[in-house]
Protein backbone atom coordinates (compact mmCIF):
# COMPACT_ATOMS: atom_id res chain seq x y z
CA UNK A 1 0.00 0.00 0.00
CA UNK A 2 2.87 2.27 0.72
CA UNK A 3 4.24 1.57 -2.71
CA UNK A 4 0.87 2.26 -4.19
CA UNK A 5 0.85 5.57 -2.36
CA UNK A 6 4.31 6.58 -3.63
CA UNK A 7 3.29 5.60 -7.14
CA UNK A 8 0.22 7.83 -6.89
CA UNK A 9 2.33 10.70 -5.68
CA UNK A 10 4.84 10.40 -8.51
CA UNK A 11 2.01 10.17 -11.01
CA UNK A 12 0.23 13.22 -9.56
CA UNK A 13 3.36 15.32 -9.53
CA UNK A 14 4.03 14.45 -13.14
CA UNK A 15 0.51 15.45 -14.13
CA UNK A 16 0.80 18.71 -12.20
CA UNK A 17 4.04 19.52 -13.98
CA UNK A 18 2.53 18.82 -17.34
CA UNK A 19 -0.77 20.73 -16.80
CA UNK A 20 -0.79 23.45 -19.47
CA UNK A 21 -3.39 25.77 -17.99
CA UNK A 22 -5.55 26.47 -14.98
CA UNK A 23 -8.32 24.22 -16.19
CA UNK A 24 -6.05 21.21 -16.69
CA UNK A 25 -4.51 21.81 -13.31
CA UNK A 26 -7.94 21.93 -11.69
CA UNK A 27 -8.73 18.61 -13.39
CA UNK A 28 -5.60 17.17 -11.81
CA UNK A 29 -6.71 18.50 -8.43
CA UNK A 30 -10.11 16.86 -8.75
CA UNK A 31 -8.58 13.64 -10.12
CA UNK A 32 -6.15 13.11 -7.25
CA UNK A 33 -7.48 15.02 -4.28
CA UNK A 34 -11.19 15.02 -4.99
CA UNK A 35 -13.74 12.99 -3.05
CA UNK A 36 -13.65 10.29 -5.65
CA UNK A 37 -9.89 10.48 -6.12
CA UNK A 38 -7.43 7.61 -5.44
CA UNK A 39 -6.03 9.18 -2.28
CA UNK A 40 -9.45 9.44 -0.74
CA UNK A 41 -10.02 5.85 -1.82
CA UNK A 42 -6.84 4.83 -0.04
CA UNK A 43 -7.97 6.53 3.12
CA UNK A 44 -11.30 4.80 2.88
CA UNK A 45 -9.40 1.47 2.50
CA UNK A 46 -7.52 2.06 5.78
CA UNK A 47 -10.25 0.25 7.70
CA UNK A 48 -9.03 -3.02 6.29
CA UNK A 49 -5.59 -2.53 7.78
CA UNK A 50 -4.52 -3.95 11.10
CA UNK A 51 -5.13 -1.44 13.88
CA UNK A 52 -1.46 -0.97 14.73
CA UNK A 53 -0.58 0.00 11.11
CA UNK A 54 -3.35 2.49 10.78
CA UNK A 55 -1.63 5.55 12.41
CA UNK A 56 1.54 5.10 10.38
CA UNK A 57 -0.33 4.77 7.14
CA UNK A 58 -2.61 7.69 8.03
CA UNK A 59 0.42 9.91 8.54
CA UNK A 60 1.90 8.71 5.28
CA UNK A 61 -1.25 9.47 3.32
CA UNK A 62 -1.39 12.95 4.81
CA UNK A 63 2.22 13.67 3.84
CA UNK A 64 1.54 12.60 0.30
CA UNK A 65 -1.62 14.69 0.21
CA UNK A 66 0.19 17.76 1.50
CA UNK A 67 3.04 17.32 -0.98
CA UNK A 68 0.61 17.03 -3.85
CA UNK A 69 -1.39 20.05 -2.61
CA UNK A 70 1.75 22.20 -2.24
CA UNK A 71 2.92 21.28 -5.70
CA UNK A 72 -0.52 22.06 -7.08
CA UNK A 73 -0.59 25.50 -5.51
CA UNK A 74 2.87 26.31 -6.68
CA UNK A 75 1.96 25.29 -10.18
CA UNK A 76 -1.32 27.24 -9.95
CA UNK A 77 0.49 30.54 -9.29
CA UNK A 78 2.60 30.06 -12.40
CA UNK A 79 -0.32 29.11 -14.58
CA UNK A 80 -2.53 31.94 -13.34
CA UNK A 81 0.16 34.48 -14.12
CA UNK A 82 0.57 32.98 -17.57
CA UNK A 83 -3.17 33.22 -18.07
CA UNK A 84 -3.20 36.92 -17.12
CA UNK A 85 -0.30 37.60 -19.39
CA UNK A 86 -2.05 35.92 -22.23
CA UNK A 87 -5.20 37.98 -21.61
CA UNK A 88 -3.23 41.23 -21.51
CA UNK A 89 -1.48 40.24 -24.69
CA UNK A 90 -4.81 39.76 -26.40
CA UNK A 91 -6.09 43.13 -25.14
CA UNK A 92 -3.30 45.17 -26.74
CA UNK A 93 -4.66 48.23 -28.65
CA UNK A 94 -3.24 50.37 -31.45
CA UNK A 95 -2.29 53.41 -29.43
CA UNK A 96 -1.59 55.37 -32.61
CA UNK A 97 -5.32 55.54 -33.43
CA UNK A 98 -6.74 59.05 -32.78
CA UNK A 99 -8.35 59.90 -29.45
CA UNK A 100 -12.00 60.75 -29.12
CA UNK A 101 -12.10 64.39 -30.21
CA UNK A 102 -13.20 67.00 -27.67
CA UNK A 103 -15.29 69.52 -29.57
CA UNK A 104 -14.01 73.01 -28.85
CA UNK A 105 -14.79 76.35 -30.40
CA UNK A 106 -12.89 79.56 -30.01
CA UNK A 107 -13.35 83.32 -30.00
CA UNK A 108 -13.29 85.40 -33.18
CA UNK A 109 -9.79 86.79 -33.78
CA UNK A 110 -11.05 90.34 -33.23
CA UNK A 111 -12.53 89.36 -29.86
CA UNK A 112 -9.22 87.79 -29.02
CA UNK A 113 -7.36 91.03 -29.77
CA UNK A 114 -9.94 93.23 -28.04
CA UNK A 115 -10.00 91.11 -24.88
CA UNK A 116 -6.23 91.04 -24.72
CA UNK A 117 -6.19 94.84 -24.85
CA UNK A 118 -9.07 95.12 -22.38
CA UNK A 119 -7.33 92.84 -19.90
CA UNK A 120 -4.06 94.73 -20.15
CA UNK A 121 -5.74 98.02 -19.35
CA UNK A 122 -7.96 96.49 -16.67
CA UNK A 123 -4.77 95.44 -14.93
CA UNK A 124 -3.76 99.10 -14.97
CA UNK A 125 -7.01 100.19 -13.34
CA UNK A 126 -9.16 100.96 -16.38
CA UNK A 127 -12.86 100.20 -16.73
CA UNK A 128 -14.60 99.14 -19.93
CA UNK A 129 -17.21 101.57 -21.25
CA UNK A 130 -19.67 100.83 -24.04
CA UNK A 131 -22.24 102.88 -25.90
CA UNK A 132 -24.75 102.82 -28.73
CA UNK A 133 -23.73 102.09 -32.30
CA UNK A 134 -26.48 104.32 -33.62
CA UNK A 135 -25.52 107.70 -32.26
CA UNK A 136 -26.53 111.32 -32.16
CA UNK A 137 -24.55 113.66 -34.37
CA UNK A 138 -23.85 115.60 -31.18
CA UNK A 139 -21.91 112.82 -29.45
CA UNK A 140 -20.28 111.52 -32.61
CA UNK A 141 -19.08 114.92 -33.83
CA UNK A 142 -20.08 118.08 -32.03
CA UNK A 143 -19.07 117.09 -28.51
CA UNK A 144 -15.73 116.06 -29.98
CA UNK A 145 -14.93 119.49 -31.35
CA UNK A 146 -16.28 118.68 -34.79
CA UNK A 147 -19.05 121.22 -35.32
CA UNK A 148 -21.24 120.99 -38.41
CA UNK A 149 -19.26 122.07 -41.47
CA UNK A 150 -15.90 121.21 -39.89
CA UNK A 151 -13.46 120.15 -42.61
CA UNK A 152 -12.39 117.09 -40.61
CA UNK A 153 -15.86 115.59 -40.98
CA UNK A 154 -14.74 114.65 -44.49
CA UNK A 155 -12.22 112.30 -42.98
CA UNK A 156 -14.97 109.92 -42.05
CA UNK A 157 -17.87 109.83 -44.41
CA UNK A 158 -20.80 108.60 -42.42
CA UNK A 159 -24.01 106.61 -42.71
CA UNK A 160 -26.81 108.92 -41.58
CA UNK A 161 -30.26 107.65 -40.64
CA UNK A 162 -31.76 111.09 -40.15
CA UNK A 163 -30.06 114.46 -40.22
CA UNK A 164 -29.17 114.06 -36.61
CA UNK A 165 -28.72 110.34 -36.16
CA UNK A 166 -26.00 108.24 -37.68
CA UNK A 167 -24.05 105.01 -37.30
CA UNK A 168 -21.12 106.04 -35.15
CA UNK A 169 -17.94 106.55 -37.14
CA UNK A 170 -15.66 105.92 -34.17
CA UNK A 171 -16.00 104.83 -30.55
CA UNK A 172 -15.17 108.34 -29.33
CA UNK A 173 -18.83 109.19 -28.62
CA UNK A 174 -18.58 106.71 -25.75
CA UNK A 175 -15.88 108.95 -24.31
CA UNK A 176 -18.11 112.00 -24.68
CA UNK A 177 -20.99 110.17 -23.00
CA UNK A 178 -18.81 108.88 -20.18
CA UNK A 179 -17.41 112.32 -19.52
CA UNK A 180 -20.88 113.79 -19.43
CA UNK A 181 -22.03 111.06 -17.04
CA UNK A 182 -19.02 111.37 -14.72
CA UNK A 183 -19.71 115.07 -14.23
CA UNK A 184 -16.18 116.32 -13.79
CA UNK A 185 -14.70 113.29 -12.02
CA UNK A 186 -11.44 111.60 -13.08
CA UNK A 187 -11.82 108.87 -15.70
CA UNK A 188 -9.84 105.84 -16.83
CA UNK A 189 -11.69 103.88 -19.49
CA UNK A 190 -11.28 101.68 -22.53
CA UNK A 191 -14.06 101.75 -25.13
CA UNK A 192 -14.24 98.88 -27.61
CA UNK A 193 -16.94 98.54 -30.24
CA UNK A 194 -18.17 98.38 -33.79
CA UNK A 195 -18.02 101.46 -36.01
CA UNK A 196 -19.20 102.26 -39.53
CA UNK A 197 -17.92 104.37 -42.40
CA UNK A 198 -18.92 104.85 -46.02
CA UNK A 199 -16.22 102.73 -47.61
CA UNK A 200 -16.43 100.14 -50.35
CA UNK A 201 -15.39 96.81 -48.95
CA UNK A 202 -12.08 95.59 -50.32
CA UNK A 203 -8.90 93.96 -49.01
CA UNK A 204 -8.05 96.95 -46.80
CA UNK A 205 -11.42 98.70 -46.30
CA UNK A 206 -14.57 97.63 -44.56
CA UNK A 207 -17.77 99.62 -44.09
CA UNK A 208 -17.98 98.03 -40.64
CA UNK A 209 -14.98 97.56 -38.42
CA UNK A 210 -14.00 97.69 -34.78
CA UNK A 211 -12.19 100.27 -32.73
CA UNK A 212 -10.83 100.36 -29.25
CA UNK A 213 -10.13 103.65 -27.56
CA UNK A 214 -8.77 104.75 -24.23
CA UNK A 215 -9.38 107.88 -22.19
CA UNK A 216 -7.70 109.11 -19.02
CA UNK A 217 -8.70 112.35 -17.34
CA UNK A 218 -7.26 113.61 -14.09
CA UNK A 219 -5.27 116.36 -12.50
CA UNK A 220 -1.96 117.01 -14.17
CA UNK A 221 -2.19 114.34 -16.84
CA UNK A 222 0.74 115.00 -19.14
CA UNK A 223 1.78 113.97 -22.61
CA UNK A 224 4.59 111.97 -21.04
CA UNK A 225 1.89 109.89 -19.30
CA UNK A 226 0.42 109.14 -22.70
CA UNK A 227 3.81 108.11 -24.02
CA UNK A 228 4.49 105.88 -21.00
CA UNK A 229 1.07 104.24 -21.21
CA UNK A 230 1.41 103.54 -24.93
CA UNK A 231 4.86 102.14 -24.37
CA UNK A 232 3.53 99.64 -21.81
CA UNK A 233 0.78 98.72 -24.27
CA UNK A 234 3.20 98.22 -27.19
CA UNK A 235 5.53 95.99 -25.19
CA UNK A 236 2.71 93.87 -23.82
CA UNK A 237 0.95 93.46 -27.18
CA UNK A 238 3.92 93.17 -29.48
CA UNK A 239 6.88 92.08 -27.37
CA UNK A 240 9.12 93.40 -24.59
CA UNK A 241 11.78 94.76 -26.93
CA UNK A 242 9.38 97.01 -28.87
CA UNK A 243 10.22 100.67 -29.06
CA UNK A 244 7.65 103.33 -29.80
CA UNK A 245 7.88 106.67 -31.51
CA UNK A 246 5.36 109.46 -31.72
CA UNK A 247 4.76 111.51 -34.85
CA UNK A 248 2.72 114.71 -34.94
CA UNK A 249 -0.73 114.32 -36.46
CA UNK A 250 -4.18 115.85 -36.30
CA UNK A 251 -7.45 114.85 -34.70
CA UNK A 252 -10.06 117.48 -33.90
CA UNK A 253 -10.62 116.07 -30.41
CA UNK A 254 -6.99 116.13 -29.29
CA UNK A 255 -4.29 118.78 -29.17
CA UNK A 256 -1.44 117.99 -29.49
CA UNK A 257 -2.24 114.95 -31.61
CA UNK A 258 0.15 112.16 -32.46
CA UNK A 259 0.39 108.89 -34.28
CA UNK A 260 2.29 106.09 -32.65
CA UNK A 261 4.62 103.76 -34.51
CA UNK A 262 6.22 100.69 -33.01
CA UNK A 263 9.53 99.25 -34.07
CA UNK A 264 8.77 96.41 -36.46
CA UNK A 265 8.15 93.17 -34.58
CA UNK A 266 9.17 91.10 -37.53
CA UNK A 267 12.55 92.57 -38.44
CA UNK A 268 13.22 94.49 -35.24
CA UNK A 269 13.65 97.73 -37.14
CA UNK A 270 16.05 96.80 -39.92
CA UNK A 271 13.34 96.94 -42.60
CA UNK A 272 11.19 94.18 -44.11
CA UNK A 273 7.95 93.70 -46.01
CA UNK A 274 5.78 94.03 -42.88
CA UNK A 275 7.10 97.53 -42.09
CA UNK A 276 7.50 98.39 -45.78
CA UNK A 277 11.25 98.76 -45.27
CA UNK A 278 10.88 101.61 -42.79
CA UNK A 279 11.51 99.65 -39.59
CA UNK A 280 8.36 101.19 -38.07
CA UNK A 281 4.71 100.20 -38.09
CA UNK A 282 1.88 102.68 -37.53
CA UNK A 283 -0.37 101.35 -34.79
CA UNK A 284 -2.60 104.05 -33.38
CA UNK A 285 -3.60 107.70 -33.07
CA UNK A 286 -3.57 109.58 -29.78
CA UNK A 287 -3.28 112.96 -28.17
CA UNK A 288 -4.07 115.23 -25.26
CA UNK A 289 -7.83 115.79 -24.93
CA UNK A 290 -8.75 119.09 -26.60
CA UNK A 291 -9.89 121.69 -24.03
CA UNK A 292 -13.07 122.26 -26.04
CA UNK A 293 -13.98 118.59 -25.60
CA UNK A 294 -13.38 118.81 -21.85
CA UNK A 295 -15.35 122.02 -21.49
CA UNK A 296 -18.28 120.74 -23.55
CA UNK A 297 -18.59 117.76 -21.22
CA UNK A 298 -18.53 120.05 -18.19
CA UNK A 299 -14.90 119.62 -17.19
CA UNK A 300 -12.73 122.53 -16.07
CA UNK A 301 -9.95 122.24 -18.65
CA UNK A 302 -7.67 124.45 -16.54
CA UNK A 303 -7.81 121.99 -13.67
CA UNK A 304 -8.19 118.61 -15.37
CA UNK A 305 -6.36 117.37 -18.39
CA UNK A 306 -6.35 114.07 -20.15
CA UNK A 307 -5.16 111.88 -22.94
CA UNK A 308 -6.94 109.64 -25.40
CA UNK A 309 -5.86 107.03 -27.88
CA UNK A 310 -7.59 104.86 -30.43
CA UNK A 311 -6.74 101.93 -32.62
CA UNK A 312 -8.21 99.35 -34.95
CA UNK A 313 -8.26 95.74 -33.77
CA UNK A 314 -8.53 94.63 -37.42
CA UNK A 315 -5.22 96.30 -38.20
CA UNK A 316 -3.60 94.84 -35.10
CA UNK A 317 -4.93 91.37 -35.88
CA UNK A 318 -3.79 91.68 -39.50
CA UNK A 319 -0.31 92.66 -38.38
CA UNK A 320 -0.05 90.14 -35.56
CA UNK A 321 -1.40 87.15 -37.43
CA UNK A 322 -0.33 88.15 -40.95
CA UNK A 323 -3.92 88.33 -42.28
CA UNK A 324 -3.87 89.97 -45.73
CA UNK A 325 -7.55 90.72 -46.34
CA UNK A 326 -9.83 92.52 -43.87
CA UNK A 327 -12.89 90.75 -45.31
CA UNK A 328 -11.76 87.50 -43.68
CA UNK A 329 -13.00 88.91 -40.38
CA UNK A 330 -16.55 89.16 -41.67
CA UNK A 331 -17.02 86.14 -43.97
CA UNK A 332 -16.67 83.68 -41.08
CA UNK A 333 -15.03 80.91 -43.03
CA UNK A 334 -14.56 78.17 -40.43
CA UNK A 335 -11.19 77.35 -41.97
CA UNK A 336 -10.17 80.88 -40.97
CA UNK A 337 -11.96 81.18 -37.63
CA UNK A 338 -10.80 77.87 -36.23
CA UNK A 339 -7.17 78.91 -36.56
CA UNK A 340 -7.49 81.22 -33.57
CA UNK A 341 -7.70 78.44 -31.03
CA UNK A 342 -4.18 78.17 -29.68
CA UNK A 343 -2.89 80.29 -26.83
CA UNK A 344 0.08 82.51 -27.49
CA UNK A 345 0.99 83.04 -23.86
Amino acid sequence: MEEQLQGLKTEALEKIASAANVKELNDVRVAYLGKKGPITDLLKGMGKLPAEERPKMGALVNVVREDVTASLEERMVILEEAAINEKLQSETIDITLPGRPVKTGNPHPLTRVVEEIEDLFISMGYEIAEGPEVEKDYYNFEALNLPKGHPARDMQDSFYITEDILLRTHTSPVQARTMEAKGGEPIKIICPGKVYRRDNDDATHSHQFTQIEGLVIGEDIRMSDLKGTLSVFAKKMFGEDREIRLRPSFFPFTEPSVEMDISCFKCGGTGCNVCKKTGWIEILGAGMVHPNVLEMAGYDSKRLTGFAFGMGPERIAMLKYGVEDIRHFYTNDVRFLSQFQRTEV
Binding site: E118, G125, D225, K227, T229, R247, P248, E255, V258
Partner: peptide, 27 residues
Protein backbone atom coordinates in the same frame (compact mmCIF):
# COMPACT_ATOMS: atom_id res chain seq x y z
CA UNK B 1 2.21 123.39 -27.06
CA UNK B 2 2.01 121.21 -30.14
CA UNK B 3 4.13 123.54 -32.26
CA UNK B 4 6.85 123.60 -29.60
CA UNK B 5 6.70 119.86 -29.01
CA UNK B 6 6.75 118.80 -32.64
CA UNK B 7 9.76 120.95 -33.50
CA UNK B 8 11.56 120.16 -30.26
CA UNK B 9 11.00 116.50 -31.06
CA UNK B 10 8.53 113.99 -29.65
CA UNK B 11 11.42 111.62 -29.01
CA UNK B 12 12.49 113.96 -26.20
CA UNK B 13 9.26 113.43 -24.25
CA UNK B 14 9.91 111.07 -21.32
CA UNK B 15 7.71 108.05 -20.65
CA UNK B 16 5.77 108.27 -17.37
CA UNK B 17 2.51 106.81 -16.09
CA UNK B 18 -0.48 108.82 -14.84
CA UNK B 19 -0.29 109.70 -11.18
CA UNK B 20 -3.78 109.41 -9.88
CA UNK B 21 -5.81 107.70 -7.20
CA UNK B 22 -5.48 103.96 -7.72
CA UNK B 23 -8.81 102.28 -8.23
CA UNK B 24 -9.30 98.68 -9.23
CA UNK B 25 -10.23 98.38 -12.88
CA UNK B 26 -12.50 95.71 -14.19
CA UNK B 27 -15.51 94.57 -16.09
Amino acid sequence: VEEIARLYGYDEIPATLPEMETKPGGL
